[in-house]
Amino acid sequence: MMKQLIAQMQEIARELLETGIVQTVIGWEKGSRWYLSPPVFVRKPEDAGRLWYDQFAVPNLSGYLLDYRNKNEKVAVFVKGCDSRSVVRLIQDNQVRKENIVAIGVPCAGMRDQSAVNDEKEPHELPLLSKCLQCRYPNPVYADRTVGEAVVDKSLNVPDDLDAGTGLMGGDLTGDGSYVSSGIVERLEGLSSDDRYDFWQKAFSKCLRCYACRNVCPACSCRECIMDSEHSLWVGKGSSPTENMFNALIRAYHVAGRCTTCGECERVCPVGIPLMALNQFLGQEVNKLLEAYDAGIDETLKPPLEMYGWPDFDGLFRCAKGVRA
């Protein structure tokens, strides 16, 4: 089945490149280990055979579209359900033009957790990633084409192979705050604010300021990040508790209510900081204070923090729950 799917993906890529509809196709390829399927950029039809897909195609490729925002180049990108939300995010943020991209939706039954690998050579069973256990959009919410059984579908859902009992899914829109990174938010909410402060100080004390979390994020689209602007004097280059925390908070606030919960920031962090807990917490706050909102589902529905409604609960952002309509 997977073989067929891959053949179909390669076929579409070949066709898109041959006809000149796009100049580049971004997909996954077979990696150097059995549990790795890293990104690949295919530019020639004869290279389409490199494309690959399996339960290790974890990287969200949509963020790469930011590399094309100033180019007049058309690109195709393969998207899983969660990844497709990032494409909507980028369209909504005017970072990409719809007519310049071809999003190709792939079916997804959940990705596997490579941190559980214990044999480098012999493939073995791996558990689902925790983000996949809580998947709510297994189908692409946005795609120009689809392969296999994928259909464009904006409704909340459970992946076919997933036991409905394990996830959070259900009919009601609960908002992105319900993304649970291994229950950590609940645990943190149970702590006193001092303990919570210590927890984050400790977590960010090991931040390397490598900015992988920012660079991989499809919602981080500033042309020049304040963390990079030498003359801002807002933040220095050194790593210190204050500066690391400044970095952490800027990032978290900047994606609040806009984060599509792809989980890439947390996946790439080389020192294992639970970044999704911050994103989730802020998502919850948005849900509580404004409205239940899932980012990157419907491009016509603006993120609550980007709107102004009357009467807003604090007089500034006037789109309090229930008042917006």
């Binding site: 590399d67 992988a212 660079n215 220095g236 280059k237 790439v268």
Partner: peptide, 29 residues
């Protein structure tokens, strides 16, 4: 060109590398 497209230009590889040694001098006011 071929291999670089997928790079995120993050600092992981160089910061974790035991041999990479580039530095920058700046100020802390």
């Amino acid at each position: 060109e071929e291999v670089a497209s997928k790079c995120l230009n993050c600092g992981i590889c160089t910061y974790l590398c035991p041999a990479c040694h580039c530095f920058d001098i700046s100020e802390k006011l």
